[in-house]
């Protein structure tokens, strides 16, 4: 359970699985690495989301916030829910096979 938003987190998304699965974890041990990965992920996501006029913001190391230019915003927990939420806001799914998106990415 997330203490900030009350969301019940039942699933660790496969992109969040850490390489080190040692049974003992010291509090705050991998905090920097984790945060670095999250910021890197946010930057990469924004590169793609920009074509759909959406922005993603990393929020306090616990959630992401997805916004559109009209001011709609949604709390997103991981990449699994990001694409789902983006589809909800846009009305269609972001498809990496979309030739139009690929062309835009190539021209950049």
């Amino acid at each position: 359970m997330c203490v900030l938003c009350g969301e019940f987190v039942m699933q660790v998304h496969w992109t969040d699985q850490a390489s080190d699965d040692s049974s003992q974890v010291i509090v705050g041990d991998q905090q920097r690495d984790r945060q670095r990965t999250r910021i890197h992920r946010t930057t990469l996501c924004n590169e793609i989301l920009r074509f759909y006029q959406l922005t993603l913001e990393e929020w306090n190391g616990s959630k992401f916030i997805l916004r559109d230019p009209k001011g709609n915003q949604e709390i997103v927990h991981d990449l699994g829910t990001l694409w789902y939420t983006a589809e909800k806001i846009l009305g269609y799914a972001i498809d990496p096979l979309d030739p139009y998106l690929l062309q835009k990415l190539q021209n950049k």
């Binding site: 992109t15 990449l79 699994g80």
Partner: peptide, 15 residues
Amino acid sequence: WTAFGLWLSALLHAN
């Protein structure tokens, strides 16, 4: 891995 995860998760969501 982060970029790959991004691509694959979006791909699987749509297709």
